[in-house]
Nucleic acid binder design. Sequence first.
RNA 1: GGUCCCAUCGUCUAGUGGCCUAGGACAUCGGCCUCUCACGUCGAAAACACGGGUUCGAAUCCCGUUGGGACCA
Length: 470
Amino acid sequence: MSQVRTRFAPSPTGDLHIGGARTALFNWLFAKKTKGVFILRIEDTDVERSTQEAVQGILDAMKWLGLDWDEGPYFQSERFRLYQEVAERLLREGKAYRCYCKPEELEEKRREALRAGRKPKYDRSCLERRVHPLSQPFAIRFLSSDQGVTVVEDLIQGRIVFDNSELDDLIILRSDGFPTYNFSVVVDDGTMGITHVIRGNDHLNNTPRQIQIYQALEFPLPRFAHVPMILGPDKKKLSKRHGAPSVMEYKKMGYLPEAVVNYLVRLGWSYGDQEEFTLEELIEKFTLEAVGRSPAAINPGKLDWLNSQYIKKKDLDELVRLFLPFLEEKGYLVPDLEFLKKIVSSLRERVKTLVEMANLSEFYFAEEVSYEEEGTKRYLTPGSLLIFEEMREALSKEKLLDRDTAHRLIQQLAEKQGQPLVKIAQPIRVALTGRTASPPLDEVMEILGQGKVIRRLEKAIKYLEQKEGK
RNA sequence: GGUCCCAUCGUCUAGUGGCCUAGGACAUCGGCCUCUCACGUCGAAAACACGGGUUCGAAUCCCGUUGGGACCA
């Protein structure tokens, strides 16, 4: 049994979006599972639309997801000579022929055929041509078989039979010397010894043509596995409109790479009722046979949920490290790591993304609390003045403000005032955080520390006195 | 237009002829927990696109219809 070799072959014309990322992931998983080799190849034959930034973006996104490659990246733009040589070989062997037809002529013929209700298929008018003037530009066409059938034994889609009469003689090398997609991909996969071509379903219809080229080149045929497309939440084709399909945007939005991987793998693949998988489990359990055949719509809510699960479980130091850039983004100064760790460990239980965590942590870092409107209206009322004063008083007598102390003080105050806990807690919450919703008050007080708590209570007292003065 | 693919709750899916009164997860709604918001927990509502066959029996196999999608340009 020869070693498995898979590849991911993106075009660097934009960001790596989630459809591509999932294809890469399946290739990676399959290679890992079989102890094979995963190859990265950049398909940049379209020089006009390919950019260096896009290449870098793809590499970054792959690294962020943890999809490391064993070989490459190879660049098609560095292999033009190879494509030309192989095309000339086919020419010599009579498996391809020169075509001098001008694009305008071909376009005209195509339109005519469509008008007459015929298939717009190349008429092979250059096949029998005897004279080959080298001064005139020509393309090289593959001489395809128009008899019989070509069968694709797809690992995901099953057995698919194509009538060869449907295929026409496709151009493999354009007159400017550039290879076409279907040709370069076969030359590359063949010469790189790819054993399993795992790619998007949009290439299924190209596969019979490619198989014929494999046969003409006498390359061993790889196994094919066409994974279904990913759709937008509305079941329509995925596009930029649908939020953020680019991998690096998920990073910016505060998703963890393991959550994104877990989410992507479950789009089309499943393992019984299991929803959460570690990378090791995925490698162990992944099979191409278990990949579904129907297209899947993305479901942002599920990614949120998965992300919140991973945020809860992540190693705390690691989470803090990942969280830091989001604080910097907001311009918060982080006084010390222990303080930050406490904050993260308190907030991690209640957020879906790191961006949300940064938003919720605002009151810990702000010099001055800003009161939100609802909290002001409901809780910063004359009746709260006494609560703030009593709490400040009680606090100032304590040596140390930890969670238990804070809890005790709130409870004592409630008893003293003959009020339910909530009547005491809510005004204090607004005074300390500016909001009506926050982590538990005792926790907030401990993290904030005695000094800040007292200062914020005093600010609230001043605020109330001014309000009443008017 | 031709060829090819697809079709189970709103979404991701389990299901490979009897275990299905169709299971799980997200989202939704409600109870519990509770100082608020979450988490958690318990529960509810929610699907086999339609029509024909095959079979003692069909979500499951076959054919057709409809609806989506891809490719060819």
